[in-house]
Each structure stands twice: as structure tokens, then as C-alpha cells.
Amino acid sequence: MTVAKWNGAILAESDAVKEVEGNLYFPPDSVNREYLRESDTRSTCPWKGLAYYYDIVVGDDVNKDAAWNYPDSKPAAKEITGYVAFWKGVEVTS
């Protein structure tokens, strides 16, 4: 089981994560969205498409743009469409 945690909160856990470019992407239904708040940040990857970022909010603590996904990825990245990845101090363990 792969688990993503920040500030004591379990953000996601799954046995079906996908690794792309060193990042672990969690299936959409394995993510505790109560901790995610969509931000205005976007970035574009030439082969994955437009990434949407999320702030992680646990209590009064906010980790800005610490999660992202590709809700409508390009065909080359269709396997991670809607999957969520984490960074910026989020602990991901298997």
C-alpha cells in the first residue's frame, strides 16, 4: 500500500499508483479530497497536457500547490488522467 501523508493527515492510499517521471500518481478514488483546495496555478507539459494544482489544507496549515493532476491529459499520458501526485514535503511511502 502506498500512502501520501502531510501534517498527520492521510491524503491518499492505494495499491494502484502509477509512476511517471519519478512521481507517484494516485487513482482519483483513493484521494481524500477533503484536504485539497484547487488553486489558480496551472502548468503545461508538452506530452501530458495542462496540469491543475491544489493546495493541501490540514487544519489551519496550508501547503500551497503541493498536489497536481491532469484532468484531461494528452493521449500519451492517458493512463494518469485524473490521477493525483504530491510534492513539497508530502511524505509518500510504500
Rank of each mutant, 00 (worst) to 15 (best):
S94C: 04
E21M: 01
V84W: 05
K5R: 15
V3D: 11
N7S: 15
V92M: 08
L50C: 08
V57I: 08
W6Y: 15
A12W: 01
W47F: 14
S94G: 13
E13F: 07
Y54I: 01
S14H: 11
G89W: 00
G8I: 06
G89T: 09
Y52K: 06
D60S: 14
V17T: 14
D55C: 05
A9L: 04
W47T: 13
T41A: 14
E91M: 08
E13C: 09
K64W: 02
G89V: 07
A51T: 01
A12V: 02
D61R: 10
A51I: 00
N63V: 09
D65G: 12
T93V: 12
K5V: 15
A76S: 15
L50I: 02
A66G: 08
V3Q: 13
E79N: 09
R33G: 14
W47Y: 12
G22F: 01
P46K: 00
E79R: 00
Y53V: 04
D72R: 03
E21R: 05
G49Q: 02
V92F: 07
S73Q: 00
G82C: 10
A4H: 07
D15W: 07
V31A: 05
V57L: 01
V92C: 10
D61Q: 12
G89H: 03
E19F: 07
C45N: 11
S94I: 04
Y54P: 02
